[in-house]
Amino acid sequence: MTAKERRELEVNQKKEVDTRAGEPTRAGVWYVPEVDITESDDAITLYADLPGVRPENLDIDVRDDVLTLTAEVEPISENRKLIWREYDIGGFQRRFTLGERVDQAKINATMKDGVLTLTLPKAEEHKPRKIQVS
């Protein structure tokens, strides 16, 4: 294996949602989930790491071109005493602005192993077209 392939993971400290920006609107600790966003000709795909989030505790809200992910995480049962802490547990929240290119009615979400995959299909008129030269 080359050095490039043997990439080692490092701890990435969870980033707290900045409450000074007026968000989130609910009590508790909130973190900014890490995301990848990719674009193809047909769609924009968003992958978000949401460890510990059950699909039923994820809320995806779209209004006024703003997509808000809010994910609640269940607390650890009280009879478990924390004896060593390296990370904190809290919900996740992040907002994204959708361009006019996204067909908001066709957004699709799936959740697997704590990763959300959000498919945002592009509106027909914004898909690239090949113009045939006659």
Partner: peptide, 16 residues
């Protein structure tokens, strides 16, 4: 895929 591009790439991969 080849026809896709990244807008954001925050998630990490690798061995641990």
């Amino acid at each position: 895929g080849e026809s896709e591009t990244y807008h954001r790439r925050e998630r990490k991969s690798g061995e641990f």
